[in-house]
Design a protein around this nucleic acid. Structure first.
Lengths: 158, 158
DNA sequence: TGAATATACGTGCATATGCCAATATCTGTC
DNA sequence: GACAGATATTGGCATATGCACGTATATTCA
């Protein structure tokens, strides 16, 4: 043998950072989707917010923030442009005056409908280029990461 | 049969957005890594920049931006805090005065060394909670997304 | 060589994201 | 029913990210 290896090569050639890889892929894919969505005037991040609001039916800030794996204050900030442009509105919850119920305005629903076709095109392109099965597998792998269970497991891991 | 299905259920129950899933997972994982890195005063994004600079040996802005799948101007902005804190320096390239060569300062190398142990801990926790094989598989799937080939395939896809 | 073009950066602006602190409101308890 | 503690949200600040535009430098070509 020409090179006696240690028993634990663990420290050697460390695997690339999972976090960095996730961020790189996120930046790239956001750009690709954004380019397709551009005609709508919405970014992927904004379209995603509208979709989540539409699905959730008058969620509170907390509800939506949890659903989107987004910091409460980040969501608050992110809603500003959408509010300013008249796509969403906030209203104090009748049962808990601390909470705000978020709703799509008529313009918001129109914009969402208009953007859906563009989003579908981006999604379609991704699935075609990446592979439908691989995409499904990827979403599954990603979905596990943003469950609360995973955060708990991460924090508990030694 | 009680409910004759159309031949192409493609339009129904659209798959969750790949882009949104990627962003959610990215936010979560960044938070988890950031929490572990906190004692170093660096964010995952900043640590990642230092690591890439260290690996690349005096890259130009363009080199590093490409390597990190980051917009040139975004990298320019992101380097500001690191420059201000004396971790990196920019110098005009001798052979091409348009280019800037990025280097870690002594303080930058110290900070990187100091942070590596923390990063390794976060990485270790992730691999433990997620599974080493699954993590490797995920990185592979993510890596394909940020290749130039994939961008080309995405743009070419109908 | 000098003009047209291409390339490398930085700046300004807008959105995205998160932490911490303040404010408003609710809840449980004495 | 008042008060301590919990919860929902916003605002301020800092970093992250990208686009459009401007500046500096290099390259190409007539």
């Amino acid at each position: 043998m020409k090179n006696p290896q240690p028993k634990t090569p663990v420290a050697d050639s460390p695997a690339p950072c999972n976090g960095a890889a996730l961020r790189k892929a996120g930046r790239r894919l956001s750009q690709l989707y954004d380019e397709i969505l551009a005609p709508s005037g919405l970014l992927l991040s904004q379209h995603s917010i509208l979709v989540h609001i539409d699905r959730a039916k008058m969620p509170t800030m907390g509800d939506l923030a949890r659903d989107m794996v987004l910091d409460r204050s980040a969501l608050s900030h992110n809603l500003k442009p959408l509010e300013r442009d008249g796509l969403v509105t906030l209203a104090i919850d009748k049962d808990d005056r601390r909470s705000r119920r978020i709703t799509l305005t008529a313009a918001g629903r129109r914009k969402l409908a208009e953007t859906k076709a563009l989003w579908a095109q981006a999604q379609q392109r991704f699935e075609t280029a990446y592979g439908v099965q691989k995409a499904a597998g990827l979403r599954k792998l990603l979905g596990e990461i943003y469950t609360d269970d995973f955060s708990a497991a991460f924090s508990a891991a030694l």
